[in-house]
């Protein structure tokens, strides 16, 4: 067992409260965050039920870099669609897991407004890209008729890698 560093011990003795975490404000979306958005496979969509009761599900997504928006596709009758109809504020998290060390964890959280788009009206090019990305999962019998697309325009994007935090706010809000 390695000896615990002294600073750690002294802090326990003196009961110093930790400072606020250092969130760096960034004027552009960090490149690493964009890379993660492009390469990630699963997204976690958080919606709120009436009374601010959160709900979270794992989903497939596609990042559209030209408009800086994220597209998700789901079935029309699902809980999240119902929630979005009532409350458009959502949060989407895409992360990279490292089971060995917390320093290897990185992730992006997008907080923004969601728009529901009927599949016929959704940009065709993006939907094709989406189908291509998840070809193994969606298969041939993908029921497009019962699907609906969700577009999320970010109000803010947080990115973290290990202990570093960055936050980008959308100036166009």
């Amino acid at each position: 067992m390695k000896r615990v560093p002294q600073l750690y011990e002294r802090d326990i003795m003196t009961l110093t409260l930790p400072q606020k975490s250092h969130t760096k404000k960034s004027s552009t979306i960090p490149d690493a965050a964009l890379k993660l958005l492009r390469e990630g496979f699963f997204a976690y969509l958080g919606t709120a039920e009436p009374g601010c009761e959160p709900h979270v599900t794992a989903m497939f997504y596609l990042w559209d870099k030209s408009t800086k928006t994220i597209y998700l596709v789901t079935s029309k009758g699902s809980k999240k669609v119902l929630n979005i109809r009532r409350n458009r504020n959502v949060s989407v998290t895409i992360d990279q897991r490292d089971p060995v060390s917390p320093a290897g964890n990185s992730g992006v959280m997008i907080q923004g407004k969601a728009f529901l788009i009927e599949m016929e009206l959704a940009p065709e090019e993006l939907m094709l890209k989406y189908m291509e990305k998840y070809i193994d999962f969606l298969g041939t019998g993908y029921p497009l008729g019962s699907r609906i697309a969700i577009r999320v325009t970010p109000k803010s994007i947080s990115y973290w890698r290990g202990t570093e935090f960055f936050k980008w706010k959308n100036p166009k809000k």
Partner: peptide, 13 residues
């Protein structure tokens, strides 16, 4: 974990 304040959800691993 998803938490919610001011009708804005927040999701983090």
């Amino acid at each position: 974990v998803s938490a919610c304040s001011n009708s804005q959800p927040h999701v983090t691993p």
